[in-house]
Design a protein around this nucleic acid. Sequence first.
DNA 1: TTGAAAGCGCTACCAA
DNA 2: TTGGTAGCGCTTTCAA
Lengths: 354, 354
Amino acid sequence: MKPTLQDVADAVGVSRSTVSNAYSRPDQLSAALRARILDAAQRLGYPGPNPTARSLRRGFVGAIGVLFTSRLSYAFTDPFAVRFLTGVSEAVERHGTSLLLVPLPAERARVRTAIDDAGVDGFCVYCAGDEDWVLDAIRDRGLPYVTTAPRGDAGPDDRYVGIDERAAARSVADHVAALGHRRVAILGDTVLPDAPSGPLRLAGPSDATHPTTRGRLTGFAEAFAAVGVHWSAITVLNAAGNSRAAGTAAVTAGLAGDEPPTAVLACSDVLALGVLDALAGVGPRPVHPVSVTGFDDIAEAASAGLTTVRQPAEEKGRLAAALLLEPPADPADGHVLLPTELVVRTSTGPVSRS
Amino acid sequence: MKPTLQDVADAVGVSRSTVSNAYSRPDQLSAALRARILDAAQRLGYPGPNPTARSLRRGFVGAIGVLFTSRLSYAFTDPFAVRFLTGVSEAVERHGTSLLLVPLPAERARVRTAIDDAGVDGFCVYCAGDEDWVLDAIRDRGLPYVTTAPRGDAGPDDRYVGIDERAAARSVADHVAALGHRRVAILGDTVLPDAPSGPLRLAGPSDATHPTTRGRLTGFAEAFAAVGVHWSAITVLNAAGNSRAAGTAAVTAGLAGDEPPTAVLACSDVLALGVLDALAGVGPRPVHPVSVTGFDDIAEAASAGLTTVRQPAEEKGRLAAALLLEPPADPADGHVLLPTELVVRTSTGPVSRS
DNA sequence: TTGAAAGCGCTACCAA
DNA sequence: TTGGTAGCGCTTTCAA
């Protein structure tokens, strides 16, 4: 049997408290006694206080959980998510805390269990959307949490680190509009639940499933409305997932037809890169060059010459973790909107004369 | 105060065991009673069994730890590490387990504490080198572990998922040698502890710090020895870290001189990409084209046209986690060497006539 | 400086 | 089907 603190105490002939102190509060006992205890522990093969027992007794764990509302491996597959996690890990490391990545089961009924079973002191929800059932479960457990998107109903207990999606989207769209583009397509991931890949009818931006998409579509729409292009004249393309391949697949149909768009505004860089792939690939090319924009400014965007909106990914993660680990005194400081920046590269240009 | 299982029991007028059963073993009580209990819990705001207490009692946690012997954020910064983690997360997700990323303090003395404090059932050590002090700490804690490199002294309890570094390295080096290259440089990360960036005197491959580097250098050396190039004729370049920038910095000096190498063999793709950057950048160019090879075959390698050795990164992670979560019946199955494959692209070519 | 007592919140055995 | 009992291994008052 694995030795316990009690065994060490018995071996040395002291009480458990003293052994405990030897580990957790060295100043509470003489150096000599401490040495004797540690020595005996060593001899017995006592691995030090059991972390679980210690957590139970102390009432906290020393780890924060990160929740992804998609498959866990997405966290490592999507470049933006990876950068976010980089930031989180930096903050966590500085704080001496661990990071628990909790896979959420696909069946919504089991999500609660997964959240309830996670041994953590708080959650960082890399949110996709309105996953209220996730937040409800966390709240019911009574743990603090931070999300990565502003919430409309955010009370003082809700903390978030997000960006102004609408304004950011508008900044790229304004740029595209200023270049003269009027026949445009918007490309988003899972714009409607279970929608097939390709063109989609969407009454308006507010019909999109995810709040993030909603914000971005709204920004795009506003920019074009300002130059007289009505929402109904904009093609909405749906990608079945946020991946390069899904972007390629979704846009392929959208570029055909008599009057193909002269610009495609994607809701993420990954999708935009997929569009560039489609444009570069074999197959019927549009008669004119097509401008393409992304969102996020991931590393690949630079080398691909993609015009996009930069958001500080690592900073988002760093701040989210910090907000969780050191709650701000003033609850208002728990609501953070990070700045974004339009990055113009070569993937956008003036609309060519027809 | 947060309600406990006891409170629910009191409220319903049953014993704690029954409430516990309502959560953990629904078949042990009538549906009606269970409903009453769950209902009361809901009303009282009882969040379900406390995971820490449950872990303590049950004797396991439901999480495995991943240890990086460098800064934790490296795990998200290095493409190969990210792919490895993708694999781990897939396995873990399938198994319904969580993933604890444990930052290891820089001071070696505190590493033990970090390991002892991690609430996990086992460790996956993304190993860099011979970090024996890490493995010792894990062993002393009595937890199972899997490493990502074969260990010379691997007993039946040690499990690993690695590759044959020597053979893999030899395969690229053979290719380069076959192209006629005889004046070559080898580029590795932290070949010797605290070595400066740039050319290095190394008596032989076995002097390298990390076993991985050791294996690769040995393979390189063998291939060139086979065509009559002695170790002493090979330039060893040291990079201060495994990053593109470090690769660029390290190689810059190495390409100068009267008789610069006609080929650079890097110990990782990241470093090799750095070499390509250096070659493409401004500054004195070598008079002849320089062949470059990498190691790992990360995504960027393909677009950069980098000749490299492919190793199945995700598979490595998947298998490592699987080995930990479902220990093989036969200990021999705990020692896995994955296949590698030489991928020839455009970054290597015949040595040009002088 | 040291130790005794009292749990942290839960599960699992066994008996009813 | 239900409940009593006995801890899991530790920390932390508090008193000596």
